[in-house]
């Protein structure tokens, strides 16, 4: 990876790690990503028809599961997240990931792109963790934890790379290059989309808050919280065939 990227990560991290609440948020996100990755790798191990890769995906999955526990333990030890989030973390809840939209990551990408993805994503993680450790941004226990998982992460970048090199030797160099390019491009694209969605979310919330503040007050006297106790069920006068098709 380029020196430019490292410097960039370094500069951003120097600021972000000092923001209150940020380290825990970041560690939570890493923990969630590791857990999601556990399921992604397990799904790949299930779906691939290559015995050697199946074993590697499986071992990789087990590493990720362990890493997720390390991250969760750090998050719980550092505290500083709200109660609801802490309870979710404590219960080991996964907010999303695994099989999404009916397909696992492996099924969506196919073998070569999946390998390229794993290699690129893991290399980026190593780079990020190294910057954090070199600059001594996290607390000492977290640094020790990151250093503990680093050898695993190196295995996670090495075997897909080795596999891609093998394909190159088989004359599939062009395919491999395309896959690597596509994966990197997609990661940029998805980063932008994520940003776009986040901006969208914030802006929508702002609009909705304005709507709430302006439009609801006149009606707030008309709305009443339901009283307790038994009430007669709402009678639907429509024929059943019509009512059954209705969303309301």
């Amino acid at each position: 990876m380029g020196r430019f990227r490292q410097t960039w990560i370094g500069l951003v991290s120097e600021v972000s790690w000092r923001l209150p609440g940020w380290p825990v948020k970041l560690l939570t996100a890493f923990g969630q990503a590791e857990r999601g990755s556990f399921y992604d790798m397990l799904a790949a191990a299930e779906a691939t028809d290559r015995p050697d890769l199946r074993r590697k995906y499986f071992e990789h999955a087990l590493d990720e599961s362990q890493h997720a526990i390390y991250f969760r333990d750090r998050v719980m030890a550092l505290g500083g997240i709200d109660r609801a989030r802490a309870a979710m973390e404590e219960a080991g809840a996964l907010t999303s990931r695994g099989i999404v939209g009916g397909e696992s990551l492996y099924e969506r990408l196919g073998e070569i792109d999946f390998l390229a993805f794993v290699h690129v994503a893991e290399a980026e993680a190593i780079e990020q963790f190294s910057v954090y450790c070199d600059r001594e941004l996290p607390d000492p226990e977290t640094i020790a934890m990151l250093q503990k998982i680093m050898p695993d992460e190196k295995f996670h970048t090495a075997y897909p790379l080795h596999e891609l090199e093998q394909r190159r030797k088989q004359g599939k160099g062009k395919q491999v290059d395309t896959a690597l390019r596509r994966v990197k491009w997609n990661r940029l694209k998805e980063g932008w989309l994520r940003f776009s969605r986040d901006v969208g979310h914030v802006m929508s919330s702002v609009w909705l808050f304005l709507l709430y503040a302006i439009l609801i007050p006149p009606f707030s006297l008309l709305g009443k919280v339901e009283r307790g106790g038994w009430q007669a069920p709402r009678r639907d006068r429509r024929p059943l065939a019509v009512a059954a098709r209705s969303q309301g």
Partner: peptide
């Protein structure tokens, strides 16, 4: 019936104004 649920959420947000200011934008998004 999703629309009946939506109606309930909306009616309840109105009834609990202004305390529902945090929940309303989240739910509506």
């Amino acid at each position: 019936k999703p629309l009946r649920k939506f109606e309930r959420i909306l009616a309840n947000s109105v009834a609990t104004f202004p305390r529902s200011w945090r929940a309303f934008p989240r739910q509506m998004v």
